[in-house]
Design a protein around this nucleic acid. Structure first.
Length: 781
DNA sequence: ACTGCGCCAGTTTTT
DNA sequence: CTGGCGCAGT
């Protein structure tokens, strides 16, 4: 989304109407020129916030001319610098808000920056181009859609739509979608788009072996289909912009002239396409300021290139590099632990973060028997902390994968600990919401065949596969959109009378709704559509447990729509901002993924699940090897540096995945934490890593003095449930256990193998009954 | 055309 | 354990 209040701002692309200049001196000062000195008078008088910055921050905020790269470590006041810089530009009258482009990577970062900007300078920021790359690109693209063969009201597809479309394309090309999953093709195409490559620009070196080398042809077909659907996907938003810039010098010049100052947040997360986009725009005035931290680059899997930071000075000659190394967030202990960990990465620019103040508590590392015990011990510690006066809002549980949240939710529910899951299941991805939105999409944009197909037979109208096939056939024959073809089809005898009648009725409904859309507000419209289409009735008559909840969600959707001026605004919001603000007030513990935690900070942070395979995640290692490992390590670094006062790392010796138990070994990241900044509190027998051996504070003997919380836990369930068995034995190669073998399992006891399927065993235990377990978790008895 | 069954596979992170 | 998908039966 673009946070631009002045949507009516007539952005004149001819450049014939330069903005009025009530502020003397604004225009000439805007000329590029790294050596032009700032205006001392304006600077001093108008930027009181500068005084609150340290020397490096201040330099970053004041160096307005030319290219500036700010390497901002975690907690060094990065956003503050950006916002102050913005204020400084305005106060020094170097530009109007509408001449400043501020891009971020995530919606959350955009939201935060907007909040801070308006908090600092209030309404003066109106007209600012502030938003995510994608949101800004949409805004540009709407104005020049024709240049890439789209209409201005094009739709933006989400992953789900993309997959369905790709599947269609692949089926049309007679490809076995079992053998070649559409997901794989999606990944290949996305990679190309992240690198700024359209179908015409993919070179032999960039080829993929997907579907025996047919990926590129499929890519081309897919792009063609998108065009007929008047749609584009996320990658296209950037790619189409680049195409326009490349082919229309006048358009590019105009934006170059417009954006006198460019600010980029989270620069380490930009991909090649975004980098090219920025470089093109910055070639106008050259006043570009990128803020980033190579140690916090965690989106490599999405095409982000840390290399963009490294090559900055090359591409912007004379660029000034400023390092922010004073950390204002964490205690020295936490900072030192995090720094020690990240030092294991080879590919980094290197920074030396420092901080002042009391040492604080060491990072606590604890090992537990399984995931449930882990959740329990976290819950107990939270109760202890909140009892001691720490607000639940200031506590966060940061997990590696979304699926880890469940154990904590269950535990917190039974312990009556209020919590919120941030970034959980997304509102706009729920089925009923997607269905309702599909109706709205067809109303707003009749060419949106994917949406039309989605709701054609929802609720049931007797328009099944045969009807869809007929419509598709007609569309292909005429080269028209699906709805157009459907309209033509009802005039023929192609369909069975019943289907024909139903389809006619539906098309009439849409015509009526479209008329209503012209006058009624989006919320009223949605209510009408959900009702008249029979969609609400469908769920009312549905006799499943979740049907009432779905109806509730539909109501919430209508409420959400009330905030939007037009249907188009709303649909854009849905596409770009998949989450839905739920005002969960009150003090609650925050549960979220590590990715979701970037940019946030809390007094207390729990970091569970530090186990090999989970964190670092096996898939990251498999797919990206050493680079993947480094990215995982950066993720760990991000997690630790979210904490102001306390950080708790934990691992479980056993974890249930799907339905089988797996034994786990502690993450290598635990061993990499510098021992002198860590306090280990591990039940006997669960951990024998190098850290514990080297560390004098390693204490597991009951009765030994330690913090109250640790003592409580040791006396509790964990110590009781931890056996002194040799976990390491279970970590080796899984034994080839055959049927009938007698085995021992540390949790379930003795049993006999009933079924053996590779590493998956089904075992009849003498006491615990039949269970499915992994071979690596049992030993021959 | 719809429903139900059974089989399979999957779970990293986000715009 | 879920959910999605393909297949067979009604």
């Amino acid at each position: 989304m673009c946070y631009n209040a002045a949507m009516s701002d007539p952005f004149d692309l001819t450049g014939a109407a330069p903005e009025p200049g009530p502020q003397p001196g604004a225009s000439p000062r805007a000329e590029p020129g790294a050596d032009s000195p700032p205006q001392p008078g304006a600077t001093e008088a108008a930027a009181p916030f500068l005084d609150a910055l340290n020397a490096q921050q201040r330099e970053a905020a004041e160096s307005l001319d030319g290219a500036v790269l700010v390497l901002a470590g975690a907690g060094t006041g990065k956003t503050r610098v950006l916002v102050t810089r913005l204020d400084h530009i305005l106060a020094a009258r170097r530009a109007f808000p509408g001449q400043i482009l501020a891009v971020t990577f995530t919606n959350k970062a955009a939201r935060e920056m907007l909040e801070r900007v308006t908090g600092l300078i209030g309404g003066a920021a109106e007209g600012l181009w502030l938003g995510t790359f994608h949101a800004i690109c949409v805004r540009i693209l709407r104005r020049h859609a024709e240049a890439v063969g789209l209409k201005p009201n094009f739709t933006i597809l989400d992953t789900d739509d993309q997959l369905r479309l790709l599947k269609q394309v692949m089926e049309a090309a007679n490809l076995d979608t079992q053998r070649w999953p559409p997901r794989g093709l999606l990944a290949v195409i996305q990679r190309w788009k992240d690198r700024g490559l359209g179908p015409d620009r993919v070179t032999a070196a960039e080829q993929s072996d997907f579907a025996a080398g047919r990926a590129l042809a499929l890519y081309d077909l897919y792009q063609g289909r998108l065009k007929t659907l008047n749609a584009c996907d996320f990658g296209d938003l950037l790619l189409h912009c680049l195409t326009i810039f490349a082919g229309h010098a006048d358009v590019l010049n105009d934006y170059q002239r417009r954006f006198r100052f460019i600010l980029v947040d989270e620069y380490q997360d930009t991909n090649v396409a975004q980098y090219l986009w920025l470089r093109l725009l910055a070639q106008g005035g050259g006043n570009i300021c990128c803020v980033g931290d190579d140690d916090q680059s965690i989106y490599g899997w999405r095409g982000a290139e840390v290399g963009n930071i490294l090559r900055f000075e090359k591409d912007f000659p004379g660029a000034k590099v400023i390092r922010l190394e004073r950390n204002y967030r964490s205690t020295p202990q936490i900072l030192a632990a995090a720094s020690g960990l990240i030092a294991h990465n080879a590919g980094r620019l290197g920074k030396t973060l420092w901080t002042e103040g009391d040492d604080g508590a060491k990072v606590r590392v604890s090992g537990v028997w399984d995931g449930e015990a882990e959740a329990l011990s976290v819950a107990e510690e939270i109760e202890f902390l909140t009892g001691g006066g720490i607000s639940a809002d200031e506590i966060a549980v940061l997990v590696r994968t979304g699926s880890q949240t469940r154990a904590f939710e269950e535990r917190f529910l039974s312990s009556a600990i209020p919590y919120r899951v941030i970034g959980g299941p997304r509102f706009y991805e729920r089925r009923e919401i997607r269905d309702a939105v599909a109706y709205l999409r067809v109303i707003a944009q009749a060419d949106d065949g994917l949406a039309f197909e989605r709701i054609l037979n929802v609720p049931k109208r007797g328009l099944g596969g045969a009807s869809i096939a007929a419509i598709h056939r007609a569309a292909r024959a005429e080269g028209t959109a699906l709805t157009t073809a459907a309209a033509a089809l009802v005039g023929t005898d192609e369909l069975r009378p019943q289907a024909r009648r139903q389809l006619t009725g539906l098309l009439e409904d849409f015509a009526r709704w479209r008329e209503a859309a012209a006058t009624a507000g989006p919320a009223v419209l949605a209510e009408t559509v959900i009702d008249e289409s029979g969609y609400a009735a469908m769920w009312r008559n549905h006799k499943s447990a979740d049907a009432p909840g779905r109806l509730e969600n539909l109501g919430e959707l209508v409420t959400a729509l009330e905030e939007f001026e037009s249907l188009g605004d709303f649909l854009e919001h849905v596409a770009l901002v998949m989450e839905h603000d739920q005002d969960e007030a009150g003090e609650m513990v925050n549960i979220m993924t590590l990715h979701g935690a970037k940019g946030l900070e809390f007094d207390v942070v729990f970091l569970p699940g530090w186990e090999e395979g989970l964190f670092p995640h096996q898939r990251a290692l498999d797919e990206n090897g050493a680079a993947g490992l480094e990215e995982e390590r950066r993720l760990a670094y991000v997690g630790l540096t979210r904490a102001r006062r306390r950080a708790y790392v934990s691992f479980a010796a056993n974890r249930r995945l799907f339905n089988l138990w797996q034994s786990a070994i502690p993450s290598r990241f635990i061993d990499e934490l510098p021992g002198e900044h860590v306090e280990v509190d591990v039940a006997q027998g669960l951990y024998s890593g190098g850290l514990a051996k080297a560390e004098s504070s390693y204490h597991f003997a009951p009765g030994q003095a330690s913090s109250g919380a640790a003592r409580r836990r040791r006396g509790g369930r964990m110590a009781a449930s931890a056996p002194d068995g040799d976990q390491a034995a279970a970590q080796g190669e899984p034994d080839a256990l055959r049927r009938g073998a007698r085995v021992f399992h540390q949790k379930f006891g003795y049993g006999k193998v009933v079924e053996a399927d590779g590493a998956k065993l089904e075992i009849a235990f003498e006491k615990a009954g039949r269970k499915k377990v992994m071979a690596g978790f049992v030993e021959p008895a």
